[in-house]
Design a protein around this nucleic acid. Structure first.
Length: 595
RNA sequence: GGCGUUGUAGCUCAGUUGGUUAGAGCGCCGCCCUGUCACGGCGGAGGUCGAGGGUUCGAGCCCCUUCAACGUCGCCA
């Protein structure tokens, strides 16, 4: 007596023509049901895909079961793989050549009618998606995004493993060093009235790992910052954190550049053109009005101050000669067809970016028009047109002000124009490096010295002496990796000289006591043989977001928080029992925010 | 904390100048249907128009307050 063929458990995206004849078991969710009365089609779904099941009334038991199935019911079916009848194949499905003729159905779980469709990616109010995140996660987009994110992180781990890096976990309960963002605090039960802080990044810890002789470190690290959320910012987020000893800036940027190319290749099958272009901070500001330029489109900023040297317009005249000023033009291709109203709206947009106003100049076929028509002459306009390369049919948006302000506003207008013209293609990837940042900025309130990035960044070799004489002239050994106008991450060569690090803290106005209390453990460590070191950290959420063509990192995080840092599924944060507070020696002050 | 957008059926949305009983598609429920794959056909249920107050003979629509979501500025060494 011939033995029956073994039943093999398969996933819902696996079956092909070659499997015809096999006895299989499939487990999954009912994606959709097409009940023809005498014949029932079911699409069965798991993370791997969809398989069409056919239930014939001849299989009486299975048929009775199938009639009661609804969307999102969880079932196990057994049956035989067979070719679909000629002409009924479905090219849209990977499994579309075959179907499973069902002989047995086991209902594993019923499901309530979902509050939004699970079997389509139709836009649904995000708070509803987050409340029922487990349903949202079943949808195709989230399954795809989380898969891409996994591939990205896997590629990172592989890349650094192949290059002899160690992945090392650093603690989440650490010391609060209140600089930068607000800390999330965790009360200590054992030590009454004392608190841990959750790390804003493992910065100091990875530097200490270098002092600890680890040499090459990487971590997929969770970071916490108690600041207001944005589409690309969450209270907790994930970084690829990397640090290396005995390296210079070129060593770090080249290995990280190799890494991003490796990741994009492995996770997306996309080849990044290399070398990735590099800009100095000053150049990026000048040409794109941003320290994170979006290079998916051109429309570089043009300086037109030279055209206004003899202008009767006083503020333009001033900005045309003042050393710290710029008059910047943004070209708007095809902008000559815009109406007066459109230009008014653009002016409002510019104001929302912080501009005092906006001068526009357009070049329709029959001459030129401008918001300062009466104050311009043909010769000036011709000069401007030549300076900017504006063609007939274009418009120019002009911003004047301090170099920093004018650049910033013009940079935002450039993005705005790019957006309106559809030049910011979510499927395109334009990377660049930005280097040569100033080490310090002037504190706008006190006028004091303030680190552009963080106080552990080393100045360019040989510049240490400028610290006392001209700190604002110091250039940082700092580098940002930028993708499509987003800062993916930044890194630097760190200070490894304890005395110099001490001096930097002092320059920021920290007292010896404050330095000791906050960073004493760190400056002490630096005194015990700290190797030169440097590294980088990338925002994995942003990276995954851009890789997925999304506009919010919430689309690549399984359980994100909403804009006011609330988890809508668990309803966290929440009040805790008085007993818990007692144990922590915590008393609550004032009224709760909400009744 | 400021500014902006949105809030109408389970979902996505429409709703005119303030005027009768608030609509559509999808979903849901029932019946029919043996080759569909966004199956199809017939029938049905389903509404605190975010909430509260006001103006009005009359409010989904106008006004005030408020709540929520999203975007953004501040903030994010």
């Amino acid at each position: 007596m011939p033995s029956l063929p073994a039943v093999v458990k398969r996933s819902c995206g696996a079956l092909r023509a070659a499997d015809v004849g096999a006895e299989v078991e499939l487990n999954g969710w009912i994606h959709r049901r097409r009940d023809h009365g005498g014949l029932i089609f079911l699409d069965l779904r798991d993370r791997d895909g969809l398989t069409q099941l056919v239930v014939d009334p001849a299989e009486a038991g299975a048929f009775a079961q199938a009639e009661a199935l609804r969307n999102e019911y969880v079932v196990r079916v057994t049956g035989t793989v067979r070719h679909r009848p000629a002409g009924t194949e479905n090219a849209k499905l990977a499994t579309g050549e075959v179907e499973v003729a069902v002989s047995g159905v086991v209902l594993l779980a019923r499901a309530e009618v979902p509050p939004f469709p699970v079997n389509s990616d139709e836009d649904v109010d995000e708070s509803l998606r987050l409340e029922y995140r487990y349903l949202d996660l079943r949808r195709a987009k989230m399954q795809r995004n989380l898969t891409i994110r996994h591939k990205i992180v896997k590629a990172m781990r592989d890349f650094f493993d192949e290059r002899d890096f160690l992945e090392i976990e650093t603690p989440c309960l650490i010391k609060s060093t209140p600089e930068g963002a607000r800390d999330y605090l965790v009360p200590s039960r054992v030590h009454r009235h004392e608190f841990y802080a959750l790390p804003q990044s493992p910065q100091i810890l990875k530097q200490i790992l270098m002092i600890g002789g680890i040499g090459r470190y990487m971590q997929i690290a969770r970071c916490f910052r108690d600041e207001d959320s944005r589409a690309d910012r969450q209270p907790e987020f994930t970084q690829l954190d990397v640090e290396m000893s005995f390296v210079d800036q070129d060593d770090v940027t080249s290995i990280m550049e190799e890494c991003i190319a490796y990741v994009w290749q492995r996770a997306l099958g996309h080849e990044i053109p290399r070398p990735i272009p590099r800009f100095t901070y000053a150049e990026a500001q000048k040409r794109f009005g941003s320290d994170k330029p979006d290079l998916r489109f051109d429309l570089e900023l043009r300086d037109v101050a030279g055209a206004f040297l003899g202008t009767p317009i006083k503020f333009l005249q001033e900005h045309s000669t003042s050393e710290g000023s710029r008059i910047v033009a943004v070209r708007y291709p095809g902008g000559a067809s815009l109406s007066r109203r459109d230009f008014d709206a653009l002016t409002e947009t510019a104001k929302s970016f912080g501009a005092g106003g906006l001068i526009w100049l357009s070049f329709p076929a029959d001459g030129w028009k401008s918001s300062i028509q009466k104050l311009l002459d043909d010769a000036t306009v011709a000069t401007i047109q030549e300076m900017t390369g504006a063609d007939e049919g274009d418009a120019l948006l002009l911003v004047a002000g301090s170099a920093l302000e004018a650049s910033d506003i013009a940079g935002k207008l450039r993005l705005h124009v790019g957006e309106r013209l559809g030049l910011r293609d979510p499927a395109a990837y334009a990377f660049c490096w930005v280097l040569g940042f100033p080490l310090f900025e002037r504190d706008p309130e006190t006028g004091g010295v303030f680190p552009t990035h963080h106080p552990f960044t080393s100045p360019a070799p040989g510049q240490e002496g400028l610290l006392e004489s001209d700190p604002f002239a110091m250039i940082a050994q700092h580098y940002d990796l930028v993708l499509n106008g987003f800062e993916l991450g930044s890194g630097s060569i760190r200070i490894h000289d304890a005395d110099f690090q001490q001096k930097i803290f002092e320059v920021f106005g920290l007292s010896a006591e404050e330095i000791e209390n906050r960073f004493g453990f760190f400056t002490k460590a630096l005194r015990y043989g700290a190797p030169p070191h440097g590294g980088m950290a990338w925002g994995i959420d942003r990276l995954a977001m851009l890789a997925c063509g999304e506009t919010s990192i919430r689309e690549v995080i399984a359980f994100p928080k909403n804009q006011v840092a609330r988890d809508l599924m668990m309803d966290a944060p929440s009040p805790v029992a008085p007993a818990q507070l007692n144990e922590l020696a915590i008393a609550l002050k004032g009224e709760a925010k909400k009744p």
